[in-house]
């Protein structure tokens, strides 16, 4: 039932973001309710060079400590490899971790990751010893390239960040799963409902990363619990092995009593 990320074993398959909650306390309650042990945080807007976000970072760090988990700093808001690399180095220094959720945005309207800059930044950061968790589009070849560069974890999107549209292209996502059986795949961004997360897990994804779906819910704590359960249901659904789909109905009760002249009517 556990998820392994760069050698670290985690009890929960949910990774959760720390933005957009109505207060730090609500964030804390929601994270604890979700059971997640990996909390992402962004630092770009908080003037990291002057450590201006120290208070909230410490608050998040304390939550993570309580869950026996890990902080996952991200490079949200970076628009090219250079910017993302600089921010990754800064976050390594501030949070004393070599984990980085690498995010390089290529389009302002749908916040779509820039695959070319992402590959550049990944290559550089891996050469510096970072453990990169790249956020990318649902493109098989891109995911393959990221894996080839040494990413043990690849995180394709379900749909654009914050849209809550769920799995927009299940075919692509299933293909990535089938073709990269040995890569840890985490579905990142676009999750709206618990059933979206469940669907990803039923496909055999190793985990789900989300933020808005919990933070913007009417009751984030209840929603966090819903996601924890949905992930578990989806995981069991996958490992239990779903039955094959069929075109025709097959009654689950024996049909011996059906008269022979009716048997062709189905």
């Amino acid at each position: 039932m556990s998820l392994t990320i760069y050698g670290q074993q985690l009890d929960s398959r949910l990774l959760i973001g720390s933005a957009l909650y109505s207060s730090p306390q609500v964030m804390k309650e929601a994270i604890l309710a979700s059971g997640s042990q990996v909390v992402t945080l962004s630092l770009k807007r908080q003037n990291p060079a002057d450590n201006s976000g120290a208070k909230i970072w410490q608050y998040i760090q304390d939550i993570v400590t309580q869950t026996n988990g890990f902080l996952l700093p991200n490079t949200a808001g970076c628009k090219n490899a250079k910017e993302a690399i600089t921010l990754a180095r800064m976050s390594q220094e501030i949070f004393n971790t070599d984990w980085i959720k690498l995010e390089v945005i290529g389009d302002d309207y749908n916040l779509q990751p820039d695959p070319i800059e992402l590959l550049k930044a990944t290559e550089q950061l891996i050469s510096e010893g970072f453990k990169v968790l790249p956020y990318c589009t649902d493109d098989l070849v891109l995911c393959q390239r990221l894996s080839d560069l040494g990413c043990e974890v690849v995180m394709p999107w379900a749909s654009p960040i914050g849209t809550g549209k769920g799995l927009m292209n299940p075919y692509n996502l299933e293909t990535i799963r089938l073709r990269l059986p040995n890569t840890t795949l985490i579905l990142d961004a676009g999750i709206g409902k618990p059933s979206d997360a469940c669907l990803a897990m039923e496909m055999g994804y190793d985990g789900v990363l989300l933020n808005s779906a919990v933070a913007l819910a009417d009751d984030p704590v209840v929603m966090a619990k819903a996601f924890a359960l949905a992930l578990q249901a989806g995981e069991f659904g996958y490992s239990g092995g779903t039955m094959p789909e069929r075109q025709t109905a097959h009654p689950s009760t024996p049909t011996l009593d059906t008269p022979f002249w009716h048997q062709n009517e189905a």
């Binding site: 908080q46 003037n47 002057d50 201006s52 976000g53 208070k55 909230i56």
Partner: peptide
């Protein structure tokens, strides 16, 4: 609304 004590 930025979680920061930056006054610049």
């Amino acid at each position: 609304e930025i979680e920061s004590d930056d006054m610049s």
